[in-house]
Design a protein around this nucleic acid. Structure first.
Lengths: 137, 137
DNA sequence: CTCTGTGCAAAGGATTTGCACTACG
DNA sequence: CGTAGTGCAAATCCTTTGCACAGAG
């Protein structure tokens, strides 16, 4: 499990450097939902001397491979979420801005229907539900 | 149809100024998928003298009302998409970055199940499918 | 009339280059 | 060894404030 990201990189011919290893490990341990800066700080706590740009570039690389996804949670910096098993599901509260993850995947045969209709091969997805959480009701 | 946004604002006590009217009309006509800057240019073509910040503030307002949503398409500026009828569906190609909209909504009774489990009232959603389009295969 | 909304300019952040240097494979 | 990857600093770009003025209700 903690090797899937590393192997995904290696398998595509990308080098597994110390910096990338630290970034990947931090991402996996943190569970996602981090900005680039938050991630940089965490990475540096684990392995000093890693530059902000290396973090940015690694994030960009992972996004290009479909393993990570930037989401815009209102204001400020982009948050990056891991696409565990190719998908990710959010509940976003309009009141307090809180983000809750949930696992239930209700897509059914939609990917197959999309493939049939648009010739589009679906590899992953992000579903965000917007509304109001219990506390904000 | 072209009045739903205007009425949503008016009904909540927001003023329907000339600038907001122009921005709302442009948004509706363009079909969405615009950055703030692209929208500003379009708005100015229709009604000169409208400032960039007015556009930003109107976008922020609409996002707060759940009528619009910022999405992060890779790099650069945020793209804003209209939440027609509270939902929006994307096909995003990892190859060329193209974004295709589709209408099929496959959520079924998920909102009801989420409400039961998390006490979260679902008002809208964004579904993004990632993969490879026909041309990039 | 009053208070919300607007526009400008300037500040504040986040992200991105350019380039010499390091180290993975 | 050669090339992909790194780190720093500076540049660039997007977005947000502060404040005086205009216009909607």
């Amino acid at each position: 499990m903690s090797h899937s990201l590393h192997q995904s990189l290696a398998a595509r011919g990308y080098r597994l450097t110390a910096a990338r290893r630290a970034i990947l490990d931090t991402l996996l341990d943190s569970g996602g939902h981090l900005t680039a800066d938050e991630l940089t700080d965490l990475v540096r706590g684990r392995s000093a001397g890693i530059g902000r740009m290396t973090v940015y570039r690694t994030l960009e690389l992972l996004c290009g491979l479909g393993l990570l996804r930037p989401v815009y949670q209102g204001t400020g910096a982009a948050h990056y979420v891991l696409m565990h098993d190719g998908h990710h599901h959010h509940l976003v509260c309009s009141g307090c801005g809180r983000v809750i993850e949930f696992d239930e995947c209700a897509l059914g045969d939609l990917p197959a229907r999309i493939a049939g209709r648009y010739g589009f091969r679906v590899e992953g997805h992000l579903l965000e539900l917007y509304g109001v959480c219990v506390e904000c009701s």
